[in-house]
């Protein structure tokens, strides 16, 4: 009896030459191969508001905030080796600064948001600075503490509106500005970070993730570079926070809610760690799903968890890593 055995063979498409940044393109077909996925992503995000109704447009804005947080988390975790649960810290810092500037000084949101993004990032980085020596889970725990601290300080001292918060802040002009502001920011940050991780600074950061001792032995201060990375991530997070306070015209201690630290991780698990675009898509899938499951009441969380566990068990690499592999490699069955 003859048993025919086959095995799956994978072959890289010969588009990339030597490194991640060099391409050899000779035909329109090959150019399309690179351009199409990027165009689909950008156009998809930009066209999304046009096909949604009012309710889902609001959901899209919230999803955008989680997407930008997920991107920041993925950047720190997969390219710097810092598991940062400080998402709520970034949102809180950005949201409070922007909201307070608006409430006390009466500045318009479109001025408050950039200022809060920058100031919030400086403060967040400064706060996280002493813990940069920690690695992995220890950094995660400490960064998780700061939002809780902030809440207790605000409540105990009864400053910045205390437990009530401050309402009736100026909101963004209309729903279209709201949507395209966050979507534009996501696209810009996404491509900027993708570029950054292949530049020299990005290579050093990846070096720190792989072996920080060797980076120190190469004469580079790892604290300085980690600080830069955290600053970049907090810029994204604080923008999200500043935007959020003007989306609802309200600021309060729920800006420091744990959701902002946790949901980005779920988005990363689903979308694929390290792919950068994956977590963004993950957030755009998870947030609306969480809304859609609202009808199930308490069961919502259970279903939510089941979906996540499903991903962890069956597709641990995440959606985007899987799709990218399928896209970049030929696969065929070969007779042995």
């Amino acid at each position: 009896m003859v048993i025919e055995e086959t095995r799956r063979k994978r072959l890289d498409r010969g588009i990339k030459v030597r490194t991640e940044t060099l391409y050899a393109l000779s035909t329109w077909r090959e150019m399309a191969y690179l351009i199409v996925p990027r165009t689909v992503l950008i156009l998809g995000l930009l066209l999304l508001p046009l096909i949604l109704d009012m309710y889902w447009q609001r959901v899209l804005c919230t999803a955008g905030i989680y997407a930008i947080l997920a991107l920041a988390f993925d950047f720190l975790a997969a390219y710097v080796g810092l598991v940062c649960l400080g998402g709520a810290l970034f949102i809180g810092a950005g949201g409070y600064i922007s909201g307070l500037l608006n409430a006390y000084l009466g500045w318009p949101p479109l001025l408050c948001i950039p200022i809060a993004t920058l100031a919030g990032a400086v403060i967040s980085t400064f706060v996280l600075l002493p813990c940069l020596r920690l690695r992995g889970i220890y950094f995660a725990i400490v960064s998780f503490m700061f939002p809780l601290f902030a809440v207790h300080i605000i409540v105990a001292l009864n400053v910045f509106g205390g437990t009530e918060g401050i309402s009736a802040l100026a909101i963004l002009p209309n729903i279209w500005v709201e949507q395209y502001l966050i979507l534009g920011m996501i696209i810009v940050s996404l491509f900027a970070i993708r570029r950054l991780v292949n530049e020299d600074i990005g290579l050093i950061l990846r070096g720190i993730k792989d072996n920080d001792q060797a980076v120190r032995a190469s004469g580079i201060s790892i604290t300085a570079y980690k600080t830069k990375a955290v600053f970049i991530a907090s810029l994204m997070g604080c923008f999200g926070g500043a935007y959020l306070s003007h989306l609802y015209g309200w600021l309060g201690i729920s800006l420091f809610a744990m959701d902002f630290s946790i949901l980005p991780i779920a988005a990363c698990v689903m979308g694929g760690m390290g792919s950068l675009v994956g977590p963004v898509l993950g957030a755009f899938i998870l947030t609306p799903m969480s809304e859609a499951l609202r009808g199930f009441g308490q069961l919502r969380v259970v279903l939510y968890c089941l979906i996540l566990i499903g991903f962890i068990v069956y597709k641990p690499e995440g959606l985007m890593n899987y799709l990218q592999r399928k896209y970049h490699q030929f696969e065929y069955w070969e007779r042995v």
Binding site: R18, T19, D200, L203, I204, R206, G207, K209, D210, N211, A214, V215, S218, G219, I220
Partner: peptide, 15 residues
């Protein structure tokens, strides 16, 4: 422990 996610020559970009 090289920077295993980088190609060999990119390892030297750090120093």
């Amino acid at each position: 422990r090289p920077y295993h996610s980088l190609s060999a020559f990119k390892n030297l970009i750090v120093p």
